[in-house]
Design a protein around this nucleic acid. Structure first.
Lengths: 196, 196
DNA sequence: GTCTATAGTCCGATAGAC
DNA sequence: GTCTATCGGACTATAGAC
């Protein structure tokens, strides 16, 4: 992964700082100066490791994406059934105002105009979506969930509800706005359960 | 509303241009230079009418908000029942990649840090949310919808699904991603109907 | 690999004449 | 109300020594 042995870890600190700043301030809102301040790496070192801001951001997204997929798999494994796993994913404690690391970036033109940034965002969100889709399909196969809905469509909607919850929470600067959406999402999800 | 009679309509053209640019590029992505180019108004005129960028954006949001509330009321009046109105609102044809005029702005730190920008965004989204809540409550009262869910929570979720649909559509640069979320949303909504 | 100095560009705003 | 000229600052990146 690391192309050469870095002695001091400057490279790692740069990536870590960028990951956090992308989350907090988006891509356009993250300046090289802020990255240097947070990572305590000098101008020269930074541009030595990453020739451009895009290079650094792309690497940060790669790391975040890998980490997210790993941790979500572990989180979902705790659930007793596929349907419960979807509910568990929706209920996962999150800072509503901070938002999703990836969804956060989709409103930034600079990200959408550069494939090196847009692609990892799109692919990670697609991965989430397909993860939900697979769970819903499993639930349908086991009889836990009704067979008469599109797992593909509903899977996408589950992810969208989360993204939208962050939008509303940010607009209101309120965690309660986030939680309200989740409550409604769980209610809607119940309607997919097989009728006893 | 216009404090003095403008002879040439520069002021109106500035607001119109800003409305459109805010929609397309967000707040930070909208530069005074772009506004001048689109409205064909000079530097001097622009700063005569609006001392700062925030003043101009705040006025643009005020106009957009008023217009949105008016047009949605008219659109929803066409539906035969409250439940159908919610479905109709979700199904309304939209450019998924362009996004919501208001939700679009919530990911921009500059908007969240200035109350003159954040408040109209928050208030308009709240208005949407409460509009859905009221429809759901009506549906419950009339027996069209089940009585055993929180109209407040589900109303918020309906708006969130739309916001999230835009996020996914932008990530994928795909209208199909938008439509997929709407399909799932409509499916979930059916679960609220009273069981025959 | 890291440093300091500097470049070139755009941003949002101001000055002051007409 | 509108014009042109200009400003201070921030942003992203480059140059070149150590």
């Amino acid at each position: 992964m690391a192309q050469e042995r870095a002695r001091t870890g400057s490279r790692e600190r740069l990536v870590e700082a960028t990951r956090e700043l992308l989350w907090q301030h988006g891509y356009s809102g993250t300046t090289p100066a802020a990255i240097r301040a947070r990572s305590d790496v000098g101008q020269g070192s930074m541009y030595h490791h990453f020739p451009t801001k895009v290079d650094l951001a792309a690497e940060a997204l790669r790391v975040s994406s890998a980490e997210a997929e790993r941790s979500i798999d572990a989180y979902l494994d705790e659930a007793p059934s596929p349907g419960a796993a979807v509910a568990r994913y929706l209920s996962k404690p999150r800072d509503g105002e901070k938002g999703c690391r990836f969804g956060r970036l989709t409103l930034d033109d600079a990200v959408l105009e550069d494939e090196r940034l847009r692609r990892p965002v799109s692919e990670t969100l697609t991965w989430y979506r397909q993860r939900m889709e697979a769970l819903l399909r499993e639930g349908q196969a086991s009889g836990e969930l009704r067979p008469d809905f599109s797992a593909e469509a509903v899977g996408a909607t589950v992810i969208a509800m989360l993204q939208g919850a962050h939008v509303l929470a940010r607009a209101d600067r309120s965690q309660a706005s986030y939680e309200r959406v989740i409550e409604g999402a769980l209610t809607l999800l119940e309607g997919l359960e097989s009728r006893r």
